[in-house]
Amino acid sequence: MNSALFLSLLVVAFTGAFMLLVPHFSSPRYLFAVTVPAGFRASEPGRAAIRRYHWWVVRAIAASAVIVATMAQSWPDLAVVLAMLPAIAGVASFLRERSKLQGYAAPPPGVREADLAPDGDHLPRWIALALVPLALPLAAAAYLRAHWSEIPERFPVHWGAAGEPNRWAGKTPAAVYGPLLSGAGMMLFLLLLGLAIFYGSRRAPQRTAILKILVACVYFLGFIFTGVGLMPVVRVPIAAFLVATFLFAAAVIAWGYKIVTDPAQPVEATLDQYWYLGSIYCNPQDPAIFVQKRIGFGYTINFGNRMSWLLLGSFLAGMLGLVRVAR
């Protein structure tokens, strides 16, 4: 089996498994992002909706695996793209089932509860640990500077699906330090995002949990970008990055799944009428900038809040700046 086929099949398996998990990856209070009565999932209409969804995703996984197997040899890059077919089928099926479930939606919850304790806006002390991995790209930059003479005049900076280099860079400070700089930028971006979510969302245990996940991501990015940054002088197998990424993503998903499906976790009261396509929230009356997602784990932005647009604009500008640096 060539590496392009292996990679494509890995993407099919990973994407397919995730899409199969989607109907279960939410609080029992929701099904396909619709608020449903307690116990609805176990009822016949609930199980039928999940069955139909799974059937479409399984067919997409099978079709994707066949297409990928036949194309991986001739068009390896296209095969990786087509490996995302289960995701496309999953989204389409999700929206169809969501539409069908509207008739079973539970009445909107009107009761809201709030703690009158003033605390909760103080960051946990362990957040300081998130600054530690920022030392990794700095250390890598210092190492590269000390071993500048060992860097070849031309080194690979991009690899194809088959694992072969397909883009090269010359020995310039921008090319050598660029990945480390963009890595550090992404780490800072994640930290800022974590802080924005912490201060811009309702007090709930999920708020601290997402902060922990983002800190874990900062550590992960620190190691990955340091590895990539050292590539001009240290040969690190591309497969190691891919395996590490898949393992890390699987661990984060398992962590998030455990929290989301825990019936003891409080569920945020947002109204169905302000959710579009099950994942876009827009409620001008809600002062929260970030709200808990209904599918998967984490937070999404409240597009009805002016502050959200300001934050989004700032983050997008930052990301564009990072992309520019990376190039």
């Binding site: 709030a114 003033p118 009356q285 809600d286 002062p287």
Partner: peptide, 22 residues
């Protein structure tokens, strides 16, 4: 339950937690 000296959440925080306007 809220004796003198107790601090209440800020307007922003309580409004956000309750999902009502500031």
């Amino acid at each position: 339950a809220l004796p003198p000296g107790s601090e209440l959440p800020s307007v922003r925080r309580l409004a956000m937690d309750l999902g009502v306007h500031f």
